[in-house]
Each structure stands twice: as C-alpha cells, then as structure tokens.
Amino acid sequence: MGKGNSDTRRSRVLFDLDGTLTDPFPGITGSIRYALERMGAPVPEADALRWCIGPPLPGSFALMLGTEDTDTLDRAVGFYRERFSDTGLFENVVYDGIPEMLEDLISDGFSLYLATSKPLVYASRIVTYFGLQRYFAGLYGSELDGTRAEKTALLAHVLDREGIAPQDAVMIGDRKHDLIGARANGVTCIGVTYGYGARAELEAEGPCALADTPEDVGVQVRAWAVS
C-alpha cells in the first residue's frame, strides 16, 4: 500500500467505534427497549431508535423519558447495562472492509487509537471479541459514571495521555458529536456516511472530508496526512 507515512508527523488517527468500525444496531436498540420496558415507559420499535446510536446514553434517555432527573436516568442506564453487558455488546457486526483498512493504515505508518463515548470496559471487550484490538496503539472510552462520555472531554484526554499535538491527529466518526469534539480540540475530522449520522448532519460540522466506505476512510486519511 504505497510508500508509507513514516516521513510525516501527521500520523495519529482516532476512531469512533459504534457506526464507524462496527454496526451495533441490534445490541444497542435491544438494550434500550429492555430498559424502557423496565422503566414502565413506552417502547418504540427498534428502527425508531437509530438516533440513539452515538450520543451519550443519559441524554437519549432524558429525551425518551421526558425528564432530567438524575436518579431516574441512572436507573434507566442501569437497566440498559443489565442487558448490554451480558448480551448486547456481542450483538454487533464489524463493517466489511474495516480490518483491511486498519491493517493498511498501520502498514503505511499510521498510529491508531480508539476514542469512543462508550464505557471503556465495554469497548475493550467488543474490540477484543471481534479481533480489532491488535490494530490500536491505545484504547480510550468513558467511565461507567459518565466521566469523558462527551467527545470534547474524551479527545482532550486522549491527546494529553498520548502526547499528541492536535494538528497531528484526525478523528474519524459517524455522528456530529465526533466532529464537534474534534473541532473543540483543534483536531481535523473526517465523517463517515455509512454509519448513523446523516450526510447533512456531518456536513454541517465542516469535516475536512466525508468517506462513504471503509476503503474511502483510508483514502481520505492519506490525503489528510500530506495536505
């Protein structure tokens, strides 16, 4: 794959997980529906919950339950995790072409990092289960108490822990939250259109590029590295 990227400092690539590397639709929506049922709330069909994939869970439950009460939201998240931690996290599919794209980027000298709003305890199990962990120089996610669930705080943490200058990194994600977090930290961002964010949602945040396939992600990352 090309001549490699060892002669450029722009070589750090941060990846979102849900909707970017894997399709978590059955596990996330199934666990949300389980939580809503336990809370005695209306339970939408799974397809009506696609918007919940990506944003932090408490905010999504706040909208669905019509409350900002912390105790209520904590209960809902707790019910969600009852199902997700045992079953839902494995109801997931790696998008076609993802392993090949990650392998090619590493071969070209890029260092890859996972940066997901999902709690790290779950994210690490998912990438290990699907054989993706070996591609990453570091795995980063939120804490179970919600610390660093917002992408702005999470990416600031990654940059600090890894000693990465913002101009040397690019964030890859499928929702506006990924792009907003990147921009807030001075990091370039590439939006992927095959996940759960609409093209208009991504374009509104001013990414340097959009990628329609995992293969296209690799193309756009290489273009960013030499721009």
Rank of each mutant, 00 (worst) to 15 (best):
E91K: 07
N92Q: 15
V121I: 15
Y135Q: 06
E45Q: 15
A41Y: 10
T29A: 11
L57W: 00
D69A: 14
P26H: 12
R33A: 09
T20K: 08
D104E: 15
P44Y: 06
L49E: 04
I106G: 15
K118G: 06
A76K: 01
D96V: 11
Y129M: 13
G109E: 13
I106E: 13
D23G: 02
L144E: 02
Y80D: 00
L49F: 07
I32D: 01
A35D: 00
V94C: 08
G59T: 10
F90D: 03
D145E: 02
T72K: 05
E91W: 05
L114K: 07
E37M: 04
L114H: 09
F136W: 13
V121F: 02
Y140P: 07
R33T: 05
D69G: 09
T20V: 10
L57Y: 00
D96Y: 02
L49V: 01
P44D: 03
S117Y: 02
T29S: 14
T20H: 09
L105W: 08
S124D: 13
V43D: 11
Y135V: 02
V93A: 14
L63Q: 13
Y113D: 04
T67A: 06
L49K: 06
R83Y: 01
G19K: 09
D18W: 08
R50I: 05
V121L: 06
T67D: 05
V93K: 13
V121G: 00
L63V: 14
Q133A: 14
K118H: 13
D71P: 04
G19D: 10
E37I: 01
F79H: 14
G109M: 12
S111M: 12
V94M: 03
I28W: 04
T20S: 12
G54E: 11
F84N: 00
G27M: 11
L120Y: 02
I32S: 01
P55N: 12
R33Q: 15
